[in-house]
């Protein structure tokens, strides 16, 4: 067994330990179901109420991915625009930082005002949450392309779009994919917030309703579903990242190996 496998096993054990301790503490101190249900009860509730939970989970995934998809489209185009020249980058960057530091939760009421409660504000919230990391990373990747690499292309008489396609964009891919795994998590957060505040579907809404009727195990079952979805999305996009932009890792790997 090598070092990384051992670490993975250890963190798995740590997670299990966490749930076992939770279970034991609830049992020993007789914690009420209305305060903190035991993990075993939560899982039983999840299995029991699965048919009711499922449509909400699908709604949440759908909203997240739709918002994230729009986020990618807009993020890529804005990022390419801003990263297209040093000047555009320097001019637009402060405004970008300003926008991205607004707590996005604050825009949910505005979306509800404009579009009414439902799926639309949730999709928009997911989009707005996910768009900024993508814009910033794509713009940074493009704006920091080594002039030497561009010179190689210019000497060959390459047009601007050929330089973009053959050098700048591939060079930016690691930045782009690194932003995706962050963004998809943010999109997910945005979706759940909007569902909690202003929707009649989705896991966020399910948890809202369950808590107002003191169905605490169901609230926690919803939380478990969210955790599972969030981790899965992150893992999927990390995997895509490592597959598509493996060359950056291998470069690092080499310099590490040669020490």
């Amino acid at each position: 067994m090598n070092e990384s496998q051992r670490r993975r096993l250890m963190s798995l054990g740590f997670i299990l330990l966490f749930f076992v301790l939770w279970e034991l503490i609830c049992l020993v101190f007789g914690v009420s179901q209305l305060v903190l249900p035991r993990p075993s009860v939560i899982i039983a509730t999840f299995i029991d109420r699965f048919p009711a939970i499922m449509p909400h989970a699908i709604q949440t995934i759908y909203t997240t991915l739709l918002g994230f998809g729009f986020g990618i489209l807009i993020g890529l185009s804005l990022g390419m625009l801003i990263g297209s020249s040093r000047l555009a980058f320097d001019v637009a960057y402060p405004l970008l930082v300003g926008f991205s530091s607004i707590p996005k939760v604050a825009v949910v009421p505005i979306f509800v005002l404009w579009f009414g409660a439902g799926t639309v504000p949730a999709v928009l919230t997911a989009m707005i949450m996910s768009v900024f990391p993508i814009v910033v990373n794509v713009a940074t990747g493009l704006a920091t392309t080594e002039p030497e690499l561009e010179d190689v292309m210019k000497t060959l008489g390459a047009k601007k779009h050929e330089i973009l396609w053959n050098v700048s964009l591939p060079r930016t891919m690691p930045f782009f994919f690194a932003s995706l795994k962050v963004s998809v998590t943010l999109a997910f957060v945005g979706t759940v917030i909007a569902e909690t505040v202003a929707s009649n579907r989705g896991i966020g809404n399910l948890m809202m309703i369950a808590s107002s009727s003191f169905d605490v195990p169901l609230v926690f079952a919803g939380l478990f579903v969210l955790a599972a979805l969030g981790v899965s999305l992150y893992v999927i996009f990390s995997f895509i990242e490592s597959r598509v932009t493996g060359w950056t890792k291998r470069q690092d790997g080499l310099s590490v190996a040669s020490h």
Partner: peptide
Amino acid sequence: MAFQNPTLLPW
């Protein structure tokens, strides 16, 4: 043209 750095595209 060739430069002091090989400037190969790493990908």
